[in-house]
Simulated assay, not measured.
Amino acid sequence: MERWWNDFKHIWMDHHPRPANLEELETLVKGAIDYFNRKRAYASKNGLTAEQFRNQAVSC
């Protein structure tokens, strides 16, 4: 979880404009969750996204 927060702050938030209100913040956080779970591949997971890695683990 600490790694996710670190990536969220340094990879996601540093590259997006600061949200002006709660709705923008919610949209930004939802986008980050989607990105880190479904789009970003991790070397520690053999190049799979978090979602692909979990699905592979469940099917074994």
Rank of each mutant, 00 (worst) to 15 (best):
S59M: 15
T27F: 09
A43P: 12
M1K: 12
N55R: 14
R3S: 08
K45R: 15
K45V: 11
H15L: 02
L25C: 08
S59W: 13
E24F: 06
R40M: 07
R40D: 04
L28N: 02
F36S: 03
N6A: 10
D34H: 15
P17F: 03
Y42T: 06
L22D: 11
Q56N: 09
Q56C: 08
L48Y: 11
N37G: 04
R18G: 07
R40C: 04
M1N: 12
E26D: 11
L22F: 12
K30R: 14
R3A: 11
H16C: 02
N46W: 15
R38Y: 11
A50I: 07
D7Y: 08
E23N: 11
V29T: 01
N37S: 08
I33S: 05
N21G: 00
N46Q: 13
D7A: 05
A50Q: 09
A20H: 10
I11S: 05
C60T: 10
V29W: 04
K30L: 15
Q56E: 14
R40W: 06
I33R: 09
A50L: 11
N21A: 01
Q52G: 06
G31M: 00
E26N: 07
E51P: 04
W4R: 03
C60L: 15
P19T: 00
N46D: 15
H10E: 12
Y35G: 04
Q52I: 02
K45T: 10
I33T: 06
M13A: 08
A57H: 15
K30Y: 04
K30P: 02
W4F: 15
E2P: 15
E24V: 04
R3C: 13
E24W: 08
G47T: 03
D34S: 14
K39C: 07
E23C: 05
R3F: 11
D34M: 10
T27D: 14
R54L: 14
G47Y: 03
I11A: 00
Q56H: 11
Y42H: 15
N37E: 06
E2H: 10
N46S: 13
E23S: 08
H15Y: 06
R18D: 15
K45Q: 12
E24I: 03
V58G: 02
K45S: 10
W12M: 02
Y42R: 12
I33F: 10
N21I: 02
E26T: 04
L22T: 05
T27L: 11
W5C: 01
L48P: 02
H10M: 06
Q52V: 03
W5E: 09
